[in-house]
Amino acid sequence: MIQPLERVSPQTVKFECDCTLYSADVVAKVLYWLMGEFRIYQQSVLPNSLSVTLEKKQGPLTDVELEVLQDRLNLDLNDYRLRKIIREETREIRAILYVKAFAPYDSDVLSGEEE
């Protein structure tokens, strides 16, 4: 969970993210999906915090939208945290599976010009 979103202007909110809970790549992936609707600004705040500002591109951010955004951020941050756990724990097995699946076919038959 993150702290409640703080309204900075009619279109802008900000929040602080605890980097020990949500690593930078997790936050980045969450914010990626907001790029369509928001301009995103990030700033490191020592010792272990990230300050994120979201500015809605078109029109004001209503109170309802703010609440929806708050819930969404909490959910997404946790989900990407889980994805990271799964990805890291299964990294090796995934590599083994892909090698087993495709290595028998890995001959560069069309090798012409090297880069």
């Binding site: 097995i93 892909y98 699946a101």
Partner: peptide, 22 residues
């Protein structure tokens, strides 16, 4: 405890889905 045989079979199914590449 994923055995090598299990992984071979699983890899086979993963590869099958991309068989169009062959």
């Amino acid at each position: 405890n994923p055995s090598p045989m299990f992984l071979d079979n699983y890899a086979c199914r993963i590869g099958s889905r991309k068989a169009f590449l062959n």
